[in-house]
Amino acid sequence: MGPMGIAWYILLLPGLQIACSRNVDQSTGRLEWTLGQCILQVKEPCDDNEVRFLLYAEGADSSSEPILLRANDPRPPPGTFNPNLDTKVLIHGYAGNADFNSTAVIRRAYLNRGGSNVIVVDWGPLATYPCYFAAIFNLLQVGSCTARLLFGLATKYSLHPATVHVVGFSLGAHVAALTSKGMQAMTGTRLGRITGLDPALPLFATLNDAWKLDPSDADFVDVVHTNVGIFGKIEVSGHADFFVNGGTFQPACAGHKNAPLCSHLLAPVYFAESVASEEGFWGQACPSYWHYVLGWCPGDTARDDLDTLMGEQCSSTTRGIFFVRTSDSPPYALGKHQDSTRIKKQYCDQ
């Protein structure tokens, strides 16, 4: 069994539980199945304990207490939500929560920069380890509840879908897609932007586009790939797809006991750095991932034709496939005119 098969086996097998029960909440009518410790939600309404929406008002700092919003009736206190600002919606992945690093590091970056409403989607109870199968099943519920929240903010607080930027990590990237589909069904308008951070691969390789992130899900979809073929999807999933350090293994993870997972988890770290980076993560265009693998992409590590920014500052007009190099230690961004001494030698020699 290869490394991809081993990774999938470890990830998926523990989620197969024996005990099964069916619960109906008489007060809400919500139908819920449990497989051992795994929860499968198959009917609305949204449960504010299992999918929480945490608002961080513009001007708040990283230590500020968030404001809990109800999915079906969001009521941000006066002065805490500004519809004239961009709204950043952050969605974690499998086995995550509101304080998981993939969410927290990006939240801190946006709050430190200022100028945005920040909403964190915490669906941790529906994405617990070892319940990967259940987490996938619950994506539709989480996406629906997130869409309902945004619809409530749109109808009552003048939020416009075009100003919404959803940043989803791993399974969270597919939640973002379902959120936009739900929003479009309710308003006729899809979201302005989705950023997919190493969208999850296991069980998404052959699903149709309705269940996974693709370019039709927002006006602009940009994707950062850091562990393709193992935890992250290899296929192009956006208008602009960025493969970092070849897209499979990250130089900062050399020697790590779980290099694939480490590489997967670096996608949100790179994105968080891009929010305020003066150097920037610059990429070079290439016709396809396979052109890169076969060595058919033009240029080398000393190239001067890096002209496309990855991350927060990526232009919404960007189209294509790009390859980005980073340093092997923070700060990871190498800038447009890259210092070859900061690029790990083993990656320069590829």
Results as ranks from 00 to 15, higher is better:
D99C: 10
E235H: 08
H291V: 08
K336V: 05
N117C: 07
Y347P: 07
I136T: 12
D219P: 07
S340Y: 01
L207P: 07
G246S: 11
Y9H: 04
A7T: 13
S329Y: 13
L265A: 05
P45M: 07
C20K: 12
R107E: 03
T128K: 12
D300L: 13
A147D: 02
V269Y: 03
L90T: 01
S63R: 08
K345M: 11
P78L: 15
L171R: 01
P130C: 06
P251E: 14
I343L: 04
H92A: 11
I230S: 08
S329V: 12
D217R: 01
N72L: 14
P331S: 11
F249C: 03
A98M: 02
A154H: 15
N117M: 04
G280F: 01
H165V: 03
P202I: 04
R30K: 11
F53N: 00
R108S: 14
R325M: 14
S329F: 12
D25H: 08
E50H: 06
S102R: 12
D25R: 10
L69C: 02
T326P: 00
G2M: 09
H92S: 10
G29T: 08
A176T: 07
T103R: 03
G168R: 10
G311N: 03
L85S: 01
I234F: 08
T128G: 06
R70S: 15
P199I: 13
T248P: 00
S327F: 10
S277H: 01
G115D: 01
V166Y: 01
L150R: 04
V51S: 02
G152A: 07
M186T: 15
L126H: 02
G143Q: 10
C286A: 08
G238K: 07
F137G: 04
M4S: 15
I18F: 12
A252D: 04
S144Y: 11
N112S: 12
G96H: 00
C348D: 14
E65Y: 00
S21K: 11
G114P: 03
L90N: 00
Q17P: 05
F242S: 00
